[in-house]
Simulated scan of single mutants.
Amino acid sequence: MQAPEKNRSFTQLIEFEIEPHQQLALVSALAAQTERLAQHHPGFLNASIQASDDGRRVLNYLQWQSREAGEAAFQGFESGEQDFWQLIRAHQAKTVTFGSFQVLHSLERSHDNALHCNLVGLARA
């Protein structure tokens, strides 16, 4: 199942497994890094950083206008532009899992409390 190329947004999920005493520091570092991404990489839509209740995981969610925009930003990570690998070492991440996804359906509540569904047109592969 694929959506038309022009309507696809692109999401990167990065999950960190860490020791609980590292969680708050990692969240702070990711917040700063995400702000730099938003300022310096075109195509940035939104991001969130989520922390597990047990303190052992952090999930970084980044959404881009296109796959190309997300991949360009990630290439900046790999080249040291955002010092991503140093961030992983500094917070002693046991594992880091990367996932890339195309957004095909979203639901959100607006300021007037209405629900808005964005269903991207689907085509069978």
Rank of each mutant, 00 (worst) to 15 (best):
E71R: 15
N60E: 12
A73N: 04
P20A: 10
A47V: 00
H41C: 15
Q82I: 15
H40G: 09
Q39L: 11
D54N: 15
R57H: 10
P42E: 14
V58W: 04
L26M: 07
L62G: 04
N46G: 08
S79E: 14
D53W: 10
F16D: 07
Q39P: 09
Q33E: 13
A31Q: 12
I18R: 02
A73I: 05
L30C: 07
Q22F: 04
L45P: 03
Q22I: 02
E78K: 15
R57Y: 08
E81L: 07
A51K: 06
A25F: 00
R36A: 12
W64H: 01
E35S: 11
D83T: 00
E17R: 01
L30R: 05
Q22W: 01
V58L: 08
A31S: 14
Q63Y: 06
F74V: 01
A47W: 05
I49R: 07
Q33C: 08
E35H: 13
Q82G: 12
W64D: 03
F16Q: 04
E78S: 14
F77S: 13
A38L: 10
Q33S: 09
R56T: 15
A69N: 03
E19W: 09
I49T: 03
A38H: 02
E71A: 10
V27R: 02
L62N: 02
I49H: 05
S66C: 07
D53I: 14
G70C: 05
Q50C: 12
L30W: 03
Y61C: 00
N60M: 13
L45A: 04
Q22M: 04
F16E: 01
R56Y: 06
A25R: 12
R56S: 11
V58R: 00
P42H: 09
A29N: 03
R56I: 11
T34W: 02
Q50L: 13
E19P: 06
E17S: 08
Q22S: 08
G70W: 06
Q65P: 12
L30D: 08
E81T: 00
R56V: 06
P20I: 04
F77W: 08
Q39N: 13
E19V: 06
A72T: 15
A73L: 01
E78I: 12
Q75L: 14
L37F: 14
